[in-house]
Design a protein around this nucleic acid. Sequence first.
DNA 1: TGCATATTCTTTGTCGACAAGAATTACACA
DNA 2: TGTGTAATTCTTGTCGACAAAGAATATGCA
Lengths: 236, 236
Amino acid sequence: MKAPKTKPAAVPERKRGSGVKFVYDLLRDEILDLVLAPGSPIDEVQLAERFSMSRTPIREALVRLAGEGLIDTLPNRSTMVANLDFLNMSPFFDALTLMYRVTTQLAAQNRRPADLEAIHARQAEFAAAVKAQDALAMIATNAAFHAAIADAGRNPYFNSLFSRLLDEGRRFLRLYYQSYDDRLPQQFVDEHEAMIAAIVARDTALADRLSKAHAEQIVQQIQKLMIGDERLDVTL
Amino acid sequence: MKAPKTKPAAVPERKRGSGVKFVYDLLRDEILDLVLAPGSPIDEVQLAERFSMSRTPIREALVRLAGEGLIDTLPNRSTMVANLDFLNMSPFFDALTLMYRVTTQLAAQNRRPADLEAIHARQAEFAAAVKAQDALAMIATNAAFHAAIADAGRNPYFNSLFSRLLDEGRRFLRLYYQSYDDRLPQQFVDEHEAMIAAIVARDTALADRLSKAHAEQIVQQIQKLMIGDERLDVTL
DNA sequence: TGCATATTCTTTGTCGACAAGAATTACACA
DNA sequence: TGTGTAATTCTTGTCGACAAAGAATATGCA
């Protein structure tokens, strides 16, 4: 046969540093797509069994997710998916709008050919998702589109905050959109195109104006959806 | 420091969840005060011996520090204190200036009585540090002062980015200031007072103007300290 | 000597196990 | 039946140990 050395019982079957990243990426997606509901508990041993690994890499992934505010940890007690704060959304909208503007403006200023390729690619993916009426894909590709613009702006500080805001936004949108069947998605595609044109033309003023309008549009839409949902509830 | 070991076997001598926080806080301060030089390697086992604990809590603290960008980790290889990037500081200055402006403006808008108390307290600490000519204390209390203003603005998204920028700024300043003996510190005290007055008066426009000038002042000072090279103009 | 390869060493990533808190249940007692 | 307390369970925090991946060093051969 073979095997001059008898192997230990456990067969690794995966590369050394990959466990943490795998768990982190998967949990992050599940949280952002609301597969894991906000507030739902997270059990380390359960995850360890699910991924067939020890609790140690699971734990590290959770620590990183907690660092990004995607999960909340109570010392010596449970850990759970971070809740969405519906009562004070203003700070979120403020930050989101400002980051839309700043990153788009910086992109118009600092873009390079490779950036434009990436932006066009993301826009194509978003347009495809719109055409396919795939709400989940729309949300994800829209975030990726704006992240690509931010990358072209080349400011890592803004980018990290913007990424976090876009993540948070994915959760909000996922909550309200079961299906897109109105005219808005196509309008977003058009607005994206206009923003791309401003970036290509290096027109920072136009980029700012368009991104501001785009952001306000999105904020308005989310607010409209929320108000409609809260109508069932008792007045706050 | 060490308590007497009266009991025979292993004596924990410390509370359960405190290990990680202790190591995290201490390492963070040492990094920000440049006790640990940028680029210097970090050895897990050495830290474990130093704090008399296992590698596990050390590791968790390092993961969190890596999440904030204070240390860099090469997979399967060494981990070290994050370097300061002197070549492209523009993104840092851009972000710092914008956050100065936004947080101060929001503070003028949303401040409450308790906030003003905290701001005044921090300003007093800063003034005391200036009077005492304590450069290290000046740097730390200055950052705390602006963090207090940001708290009054009540936008956690801006606050987290701003905290990170102020941390980064602490490292830069610590690098260049061995001693303060020029007129600038007192000028900072005066500018802080003016900003406080604008916040008290709820004058957002004035707060924006003052914070912008303050930020540009600081940026100019850092630039002057660095090699006489001028950075590219960034107009937002 | 110079270079390629094998061996050792160092540091990180992962594991299974155990103990401490907190939550939950069981229980005694009025 | 209700309540305060003790035992149990359940989850997390910590530990020591081992294996894997690089780096450093030694070895063999032209």
